[in-house]
């Protein structure tokens, strides 16, 4: 299992570093943009010029902030961040089983005395470490930005850590259902497409629920409903319910993936 973990980690180091440093730069940019707009006052004036419907749209993207902490936290709901995290988790998790079956490598790997779920644990463990490294780099980008622009008002490190924890839970949920699809599939490309479809679909549902009141009942069906980093500084405390749902989705889908992979035929 350790060998699989190390080998997977080695294979994913390039995407981890690319996505991680990309998000480091993005977080840095957000801090710079905050300063360039003239802080909260300048942003407030800018928002006042935006039509009502557009404001709701911005809210859904975590783009309206009432504090510097809120602004920085809102960056973790920005589409750039969501796309980067989703792409990493879907791109890597879809390959853990389906990609190996499609490539034919699984026939050589599982011809070794290796329990199947140990193999999957080694693979997913490496992906989870990669996700943690990406989030740590993103967090470091935010702090670098804060140091460069200077603090207009106190930045709460504990709040940003809770935001990171929320982002980790979201990443795990995406990784969980992608791994589940992968564990029963033999086609890496198809798995990527299906997982991306689920993610985009849930994002759309959440968006619709926010923008259109009659569809608000659909919101809880989406994992993005439970991911509101910008609210963490405003509401205060830890969003335990949201974290519980996201981690719950992750645990259930990963567990199902492990069970199904243990039982499936590898016949391709």
């Amino acid at each position: 299992m350790i060998s699989v973990w190390l080998q997977t980690l080695k294979g994913y180091r390039t995407p981890v570093l690319l996505v991680g440093f990309g998000l480091y730069g993005f977080a840095l940019l957000l801090a710079y943009v905050f300063q360039a707009f003239g802080g909260l006052e300048g942003l407030g004036q800018l928002v006042d010029l935006v039509p009502e419907t557009m404001r709701a749209l911005l809210q859904a993207q975590g783009g309206l902030a009432t504090s510097v902490n809120g602004w920085l936290a809102g960056g973790y709901r920005h589409p750039v961040f969501l796309v980067a995290i989703s792409a990493f988790m879907i791109g890597t998790s879809s390959r853990v089983v389906a990609g190996e079956v499609e490539r034919g490598t699984i026939l050589l790997l599982l011809a070794r005395p290796l329990v199947r779920w140990h193999f999957l644990l080694g693979k997913t463990g490496a992906i989870l470490l990669g996700l943690s490294v990406i989030l740590a780099l993103s967090w470091a980008g935010t702090w670098t930005g804060v140091l460069i622009i200077g603090e207009a008002e106190p930045v709460d490190g504990a709040v940003l850590l809770r935001v990171m924890f929320n982002a980790l839970a979201l990443g795990l949920a995406i990784g969980g259902y992608t791994t589940l699809v992968s564990s029963v599939s033999s086609d890496g490309g198809q798995t990527t497409g299906q997982a991306a479809g689920i993610t985009v679909g849930m994002f759309f549902i959440d968006y619709l629920a926010i923008l259109w009141a009659p569809a608000s009942f659909l919101g809880p069906l989406s994992i993005f409903h439970y991911y509101s980093p910008a609210d963490i500084p405003d509401v205060g405390g830890t969003p335990w319910l949201d974290l519980g749902v996201l981690f719950g989705v992750a645990v259930i889908t990963y567990a199902a993936a492990f069970i199904l992979f243990q039982r499936r035929d590898i016949s391709r």
Partner: peptide
């Protein structure tokens, strides 16, 4: 020892790295 009909390999690894990896798994 198993030789499948269409074994796949990791193109990014060298032949030695691949054999050693499978050896470690054994």
């Amino acid at each position: 020892g198993f030789l499948p009909d269409s074994p796949g390999m990791y193109g990014g690894l060298t032949g030695q790295e691949f054999l050693d990896y499978l050896g470690r798994l054994s």
